[in-house]
């Protein structure tokens, strides 16, 4: 192979380069240029003076949240809620997609699929209302449990710290399962039908087809989404579910990073603090995604990314 200089290679692939270059510029402008704003975290930013005239405080804000005990509690909550969310969310979405793909009746399949993503469109305000009503002492859940004799007295689930993680995970899975399944469903659609035909001729059971064809074929998609989601661990459970589903009695378990950043950052007009937390968030997420990718090289050659 003749060694080519970079310039020559670029010229050889000039059409590709032409196709990709505008987007690279786009990313530089919209994703990377705003990063200059990170300097806000190192000054006591007052909008009046702009970033460069505000007083330099160095790592003051970082020190503030690193030494805050509450911060670690909040991190713990975030990991727990997001982790549960990703774990159950992924499995349920894949499960739903597989189940749907097994259905023969088109009408039934379309109906269920449409219905399944409806919760995605309901805002968290409404969803939290629904769950509060459902799980309250006079709500349906307690009612059913009492009648079935499983419990002997009503329990106010929303006020119990220990049940919060379970409730919020359930609500998130319920809300996003159908929507997340769309991607997996699209992946399943792309599987070559001939594989299934061949399997049928070989006498493979339905279950076997799922196990040996469907899942392996969409594995790259699954792995990639998983890696990306792990990178998103700090943000997977956003502001809304934590703030709206949580309340004074569960706050020690419900407050996550997004709420913390809002309370001590934006709400108090402390832009510098918000930015400092945002930097922490970004760095940590990148670390996570890099690690997850390294881990995935053990399953798929070359990693996901």
């Amino acid at each position: 192979m003749v060694k080519r200089t970079l310039a020559q290679k670029l010229w050889n692939q000039r059409i590709l380069v032409a196709m990709a270059l505008p987007f690279m510029v786009w990313m530089l402008v919209f994703n990377f240029a705003p990063l200059m704003g990170w300097s806000m975290a190192f000054v006591n930013y007052k909008p009046r003076y702009g970033i460069f005239s505000s007083e330099w405080v160095g790592l003051k804000y970082f020190a503030e949240f690193i030494t805050d005990n509450r911060f670690y509690e909040v991190l713990r909550n975030t990991f727990a809620m997001s982790g549960l969310n990703i774990f159950f969310g992924t499995f349920s979405a894949i499960g739903l997609a597989v189940l749907l793909s097994e259905v023969r009746s088109t009408a039934f399949k379309r109906t269920i699929q449409t219905v399944s993503y409806l919760p995605h469109f309901i805002s968290w305000v409404v969803v939290s209302n629904i769950f509060y009503t459902f799980l309250s002492s006079e709500g349906l859940f307690n009612d059913v449990l009492l009648r079935l004799g499983i419990t002997s007295e009503t329990v106010s689930y929303m006020s119990k710290e220990t049940s919060f993680w379970g409730i919020v995970t359930f609500s998130q899975v319920w809300k996003e399962m159908g929507w997340n399944a769309i991607l997996y469903l699209a992946a399943i659609t792309a599987i070559d039908p001939q594989l299934y035909e061949a399997a049928t001729l070989d006498g493979v059971t339905r279950f076997g087809k799922i196990r040996y064809i469907t899942i392996p074929c969409i594995m790259p998609t699954i792995m990639m989404l998983l890696v990306l989601n792990i990178g998103n661990l700090l943000n997977a459970t956003g502001f809304d579910p934590s703030y709206l589903m949580g309340n004074d009695m569960t706050v020690n378990y419900s407050e996550n990073l997004a709420v913390y950043a809002y309370t001590y950052g934006m709400q108090m007009s402390r832009y510098s603090m918000s930015t400092a937390l945002s930097i922490f968030n970004s760095m940590f997420s990148l670390l996570l995604v890099w690690s997850a990718n390294k881990l995935s090289t053990r399953f798929i050659e070359g990693g996901i990314l």
Binding site: M27, F32, P47, N232, S282
Partner: peptide, 10 residues
């Protein structure tokens, strides 16, 4: 770019 953000003002 997926995990970084410069904030609203920038």
């Amino acid at each position: 770019s997926m995990y970084i953000s410069g904030g609203l003002i920038p």
